[in-house]
Design a protein around this nucleic acid. Structure first.
Length: 153
DNA sequence: GCCAACGTTGGC
DNA sequence: GCCAACGTTGGC
């Protein structure tokens, strides 16, 4: 089992939106970056866990955990000409973009803020810091556990 | 809202 | 395949 971090703008989709969805499950779509796509398509597996990270908002940081309940499949919206996610250069025979489905697991009592993460030596080599714009990124078991230990204090 | 960082596109 | 121009992300 692997660990991940998924970025989202809470105005679009927050941890509460996931929690309040039917079956507490939602489609994770809209990823249009190749490295993030590769992580979704090739590496994320059923049963993996992921942090949800709120970006571009007042309180930036990790807010909870979700579980991958469906492995990658082509995003149907890339073929929908009236969708903002439409991609002219993609085809059903050779799809470019992939979704997963995720299910709410836990919401942290307190956010683990980006500021906190940046201030902790052990976490300084997280992709979150080193590769600030990667919206779907792996998290090591060490970092995963460390962040949980912060939250539990 | 600004703007630095950086990913993508497209001409050559 | 290079790289300038352009577009987007995301912290502040």
């Amino acid at each position: 089992m692997k660990y991940w971090l998924l970025k989202t703008e809470p105005d679009e989709c927050s941890i509460d939106d996931i929690k309040n969805s039917p079956e507490q499950t939602m489609v994770w779509d809209g990823v249009r970056n190749y490295q993030a796509r590769n992580n979704i398509r090739d590496h994320i597996q059923l049963g993996d866990l992921a942090f949800i990270y709120h970006s571009s908002c007042q309180a930036v940081g990790i807010v909870g955990v979700v579980e991958v309940v469906k492995a990658s499949y082509p995003d149907p919206e890339q073929f929908n000409t009236s969708s903002t996610l439409y991609d002219l250069k993609s085809s059903p025979e050779n799809p470019r973009w992939f979704n997963i489905d995720i299910k709410f697991k836990t919401k942290f009592n307190r956010i683990v803020s980006l500021k906190q993460i940046k201030s902790i030596d052990v976490l300084s080599d997280m992709a979150l810091i080193k590769q600030a714009r990667l919206s779907v990124q792996p998290v090591t078991a060490e970092h995963w556990q460390f962040i949980h230990s912060i939250n539990n204090v």
